[in-house]
Deep mutational scan, measured.
Amino acid sequence: MAAAAAAGAGPEMVRGQVFDVGPRYTNLSYIGEGAYGMVCSAYDNVNKVRVAIKKISPFEHQTYCQRTLREIKILLRFRHENIIGINDIIRAPTIEQMKDVYIVQDLMETDLYKLLKTQHLSNDHICYFLYQILRGLKYIHSANVLHRDLKPSNLLLNTTCDLKICDFGLARVADPDHDHTGFLTEYVATRWYRAPEIMLNSKGYTKSIDIWSVGCILAEMLSNRPIFPGKHYLDQLNHILGILGSPSQEDLNCIINLKARNYLLSLPHKNKVPWNRLFPNADSKALDLLDKMLTFNPHKRIEVEQALAHPYLEQYYDPSDEPIAEAPFKFDMELDDLPKEKLKELIFEETARFQPGYRS
């Protein structure tokens, strides 16, 4: 834990890192770190609560700039109880001085990944967590956004079992017609939660990839272990087919990539493993919904509104309290091709509203 900075004593240090967030945020305490930044909790002297502050230093890398800009653009436009918001952003007053960006968010005690390492969940908890994931996802999908990296560590939890989806750095506007060349190379989302079509096709992607990830998360809540822990690309596919069985001819016809289709045709026939054999203690309604989410063919996979209306979630289902976005989200430009200098300018502009004396 960093010592509390005395008023006016300059930035606090946390594990050798400068955290320049005073005077409003003090009493910093280390939480963890990701690929390009550290997260601390801090005391907000204005709202009198502890908050989470993520320090991001992305400006050396085009990919990190892209992810940072995506996350900020999306989260500043989203407003939903099951999606983490941005409360404040701290950065230098000029673009030349801006080396880091500090993002202030609600402090959540833990995440689903940490929880599943230590606790076996009751059916009631599984049901409530799944409902909140789908409630947040309904809003995301209504904005025409794909999260693309749903996994237990991106689901934040607090002691009252509130759940918030975080990390929109890989999110995209849904565009089933656009052929994202190089899709697989830039697709760094965790393999275990990846839909089979991501490994088999490169053309376009749809909201059904997020539903697949939610199915993987439900299976993990039922058993405290990942359902498809593939060691590499082909191993991942083999794990999936080992449980779902061989795809039907109709399902194979959806695979545009001939090499991928021929690979699947070359494999020995596998039978589907019954879900109640894998999860003998699970609620039968939970397994019915799991089956509809972990469907090989993305066109037959359940959609988020149908999933919310499934009998497993009937005690929570309330369409009048499951809000959607006001308007579909649009990125003005494809960020993939922009140089990091341009992305830095866009991050600077996007964060201006939090600067003292800002006038829109």
Rank of each mutant, 00 (worst) to 15 (best):
Y64W: 12
H80T: 07
V101T: 08
W275M: 12
I324Y: 07
H61I: 05
S57K: 13
N281A: 07
T159C: 12
H310P: 08
L155I: 09
N201E: 12
P229Q: 06
Q355G: 02
K164H: 02
P196G: 08
M13S: 11
D283N: 14
V21K: 03
A189I: 04
I198D: 03
L76S: 06
N257Q: 12
L115E: 01
T63D: 14
F296L: 15
D332I: 09
V46L: 12
P152M: 06
V304F: 13
N281F: 09
L265K: 03
N224H: 07
F129W: 03
Q249R: 03
H147C: 04
E71V: 14
H269P: 06
P356N: 00
N257E: 09
A282E: 11
N158E: 08
H120A: 14
D100F: 11
V14G: 15
M221N: 02
P298M: 10
E197S: 05
G85S: 13
H269G: 06
F329K: 09
P274T: 14
A189R: 10
N123M: 09
K151H: 03
Y139D: 04
L163T: 03
I83C: 07
Q315G: 04
T181S: 15
N154C: 03
A4S: 12
S248F: 08
E250N: 10
P311G: 01
N45W: 09
R301E: 07
I255Y: 09
A286L: 08
V101D: 02
E33K: 13
V145D: 01
A325Q: 06
K330W: 00
F354D: 14
A5M: 11
N201Y: 14
D336R: 05
E250I: 02
Y233C: 06
E186N: 01
L134A: 07
S41I: 04
S284V: 06
S122R: 13
L237A: 06
K344E: 04
R70G: 03
A219Q: 08
K270A: 03
K48F: 14
L313H: 05
E334V: 14
V39H: 03
T159P: 13
D106R: 04
E96Q: 09
L343W: 05
I243E: 01
K203V: 13
I240H: 07
I103W: 06
I140A: 06
A4Q: 05
Y312M: 06
Q249V: 07
C65A: 14
G182L: 12
Q132D: 01
Q97A: 04
Y316N: 15
S202C: 13
Y317G: 07
A352G: 03
G8T: 12
K99I: 05
E220P: 05
K203M: 11
T68Y: 15
F168I: 14
S57E: 11
C65N: 11
L278T: 08
D336Y: 14
R148W: 08
D88H: 04
T160I: 11
S246A: 08
P58L: 15
G34H: 00
G22K: 08
K342Q: 13
N144F: 06
E314K: 13
I209D: 03
F129D: 08
T118M: 10
P176K: 08
T185K: 04
L289K: 01
K259I: 11
Y131F: 14
V273K: 02
Y317T: 12
L241K: 09
W192T: 08
N154G: 02
I140N: 13
T63K: 14
I84T: 00
R91N: 04
E71K: 15
Y316V: 08
P93E: 09
G32D: 11
S153C: 13
T181I: 11
K203Q: 09
D124Q: 06
E305S: 03
R77M: 05
L150Y: 03
Q236V: 09
P280I: 05
L116C: 04
P93V: 05
L222I: 09
R301L: 03
L267G: 01
E33Y: 02
P323R: 01
K231L: 09
V304L: 08
N276T: 05
L234W: 04
V214G: 12
N27S: 00
F279R: 03
T110L: 10
P339W: 02
R50G: 00
R353S: 14
G215H: 08
S246V: 07
V145W: 06
I165D: 04
K203H: 09
G34A: 07
P356H: 13
A327S: 12
F129N: 07
M221Y: 05
W275L: 15
D20Q: 01
L258G: 08
R353E: 10
R225N: 07
P229N: 01
G230M: 02
L346S: 11
E33H: 06
S284P: 00
E350G: 00
L290R: 06
R67Y: 13
F348Y: 13
F348H: 08
H178Q: 12
P196V: 11
M108N: 01
C161S: 15
H178A: 03
F78E: 01
W192Q: 09
D177S: 03
H239I: 10
G215W: 02
E96A: 10
V14R: 09
L222H: 06
A5W: 07
G32W: 00
P323Y: 10
E81I: 03
Y30M: 04
G10H: 08
R77G: 07
V145N: 02
Q236W: 08
M293L: 14
E81F: 02
Q97V: 11
N144D: 00
S223P: 11
K117D: 07
K342D: 04
E345A: 09
H232S: 05
R301M: 00
L121K: 03
E350Q: 06
N238M: 11
D288Y: 14
N253K: 12
